[in-house]
Nucleic acid binder design. Structure first.
Length: 182
DNA sequence: TAACTAGCTTCTTATATAACAATGCATG
DNA sequence: CATGCATTGTTATATAAGAAGCTAGTTA
């Protein structure tokens, strides 16, 4: 079973922003420091997802734990802009989820050295002195998997939930096969 | 020398290691 | 009161994606 821990989405508004002015108008929920980074950060509450807004009208939502939450934050953001007269047509834009980050549990300890060979050295990277997880890039998938000795797994880079689920299912089967072989 | 490309910055999130800093508590 | 050990806390390491803007390097 997958648990979504982070959702990243991006959209584009048909408008140019003077971020200095926008940040001043919006107030304390906005954080803009162009010397540090060209984007303006916007967070509705302390633990709420982060919206990064750019001069060009493009924006990113990060830190949501479901697609619905990302969409809800996006709508709240558009309402805020509309209420302040910063945009006129809140609907003529696209918004798409770009990355789902999920965690899952294989429910048994993993021998990462054996798994690096079993899954294929050409599609895995395992350097425990650099990072304790094994990095697995299944061929033909956008998703990248991080496997840990505890049996916990992180699946990231998935453009949709179906792919994340398929990646995990395929991984479960591959791991099961490898365990029954030896 | 200009134009282009590639790589880095910022942020989010789980995962797990080591290395370090800072503090708590006990013993001499 | 000082020293030693333990615990807690922070940072680094790595992964993906979006974005703008800067720098460094290559090429014509």
């Amino acid at each position: 079973m997958l648990e979504i821990v982070n959702v990243v989405g991006s959209g584009s508004l048909d408008a140019e922003f003077d971020l200095e002015r926008v940040a001043a108008d919006i107030g304390s929920i906005a954080d803009y420091d162009p010397d540090k980074y060209p984007g303006m950060y916007l967070r509705f509450a302390e633990d709420a997802p982060l919206i990064t807004v750019y001069r060009t009208g493009k924006y990113i939502v990060t830190g949501a734990d479901s697609e619905a939450e990302a969409q809800a934050i996006r709508e709240r953001f558009l309402d805020l802009l509309a209420d302040n007269g910063m945009i006129t047509a809140p609907d003529d834009e696209w918004f798409r989820i770009q990355n789902f980050v999920c965690t899952a549990e294989l429910e048994e300890p993993l021998n990462l050295n054996a798994l690096a060979i079993g899954l294929g050295l050409e599609s895995t990277e395992y350097e425990p002195e650099q990072f304790p997880g094994l990095i697995y890039r299944p061929t033909g998938a956008d998703s990248v998997v991080l496997l840990f000795a505890s049996g916990r797994v992180v699946i990231t880079g998935s453009p949709n939930l179906d792919e994340a689920e398929e990646t995990f299912t395929a991984l479960q089967e591959a791991v099961t096969d490898l365990l029954t072989v030896d």
